[in-house]
Amino acid sequence: MPDALGTRAFRIAFAACCALILFYLLLPTLLVFPISLGGDPYIRFPPRNLTLDWYGAYFNDPEWRAATFFSLKIALLTAVFSTAIGTAASIAMARGSFPGRRLLGVIVLAPLITPHVVVALALYFQFAPLGLVGTTAGFVAAHCVLAVPYVVLMTSAALAGVDPSLEMAALNCGASRWRALWEVTLPLILPGVAAGALFAFLTSFDETVVSFFISGVDNKTITRKIFEDVDFNLTPVIAAVSVVFVLVTVALMVAVNLTQRGMKRG
């Protein structure tokens, strides 16, 4: 059989296929940009009469603003709590031993593969009688469960890269256990912790399924608001919101990657 894979024709065909697949991957993200600038009150492609009105409509609409601020608040609180809880536990799991250490390590990763619909219903079922549906506390607890696996994964990876003998050296030089943790370990794993915190923020900000079901009438996240509007009221405002959403997400993810890069180099 002739070497079909080595021919020029194959290489060109392969590159063309790859270009098509990449176009397919990128198309939805790119599409929301022109749609958000369209001058018609309905979705039209290609758009005519470019306008920034939809961004104005987004920023001036009290409902969109409330949803955006609520999402930001939840995401910030989730990032703070899940990072604190997750980092402490990761250090305990990496540098100490306690009953149930391995079990905790497994359970903390379980939310990554548990279908979110099941988590959402379970939390709604639990929260509704307690009056936690649509509350900040309820959202933060739910989002912490979904975000903390990433904090633990990233912090543990950072801890694995820190030589315990550095801490030993600090202890031998007379530092207390806490001081060694606080002044030696923590600064060394900081890039991993920071990446975990950013990731936790994004996990909460992007989270849709659980937020959809535990949102209340007043307190709803931006994802719940988008979901409702996509179903009932498909205007270019959603495209404008999406563009802002994409820009925030991509910027934060680039930040995560840069901190991780810093970690590998440092």
């Binding site: 809880i85 402490a88 536990a89 305990a92 100490g96 250490r101 939390l123 469960v145 903390v148 202890l171």
Partner: peptide
């Protein structure tokens, strides 16, 4: 301990908030 030395009770205490979160909300 050879794991780099958090006492058992300190380690347990540090892991407690995570364990509580996972049990209560998951």
């Amino acid at each position: 301990s050879m794991r780099g030395g958090l006492s058992r009770s300190t380690a347990a205490l540090m892991a407690l908030p995570l364990a509580a979160l996972m049990i209560a909300a998951f």
